[in-house]
Amino acid sequence: MAEFEPRIVAFLCHWCTYTGADLAGTTRQQYPPNIRIIHLMCSGAVDSIYVLKALIDGADGVLIGGCHPGDCHYQTGNFKARRRVAILKGILQQMGFTENRVWLKWISASEGKLFADTVTKMVEELKKMGPNPMKQLWNA
């Protein structure tokens, strides 16, 4: 049987992490191809609905990437994203979904390597966890 290849949906902010991902490409950083990137203007635009929809409909993990604290182009979008993600993860944990499948990372436009390393690490971790049980719930 082929090795389990996790699927990651990544929501990346335009000004930092998306540009960082671009840099990872142009500087030929190696990272696994398990990631599908969705380009948003700001991490503050990531609604918990998107995250859940991804997890229920086929993703094994969700990565949210934004600017470092203080660097958000819209001042506070990343802080809002952080609360939102913390609340969502708290809810899931209380309902017994304890696996760490939603990652929030601050990655700047110049941190191409950090982006590549993050994806590599996330794929490794998700492989250890195995397929996401949420995506198997046809009755969700």
Partner: peptide
């Protein structure tokens, strides 16, 4: 497409999301 992925899905969908998102908005 969603049905394709799992072979079939409950219709209408989004019951789980409904409860989880309602919580994420107002549970605090």
């Amino acid at each position: 497409r969603w049905a394709d992925r799992k072979g079939g899905i409950r219709m209408p969908p989004d019951t789980l999301i409904f409860h989880l998102i309602r919580m994420s908005h107002m549970v605090t």
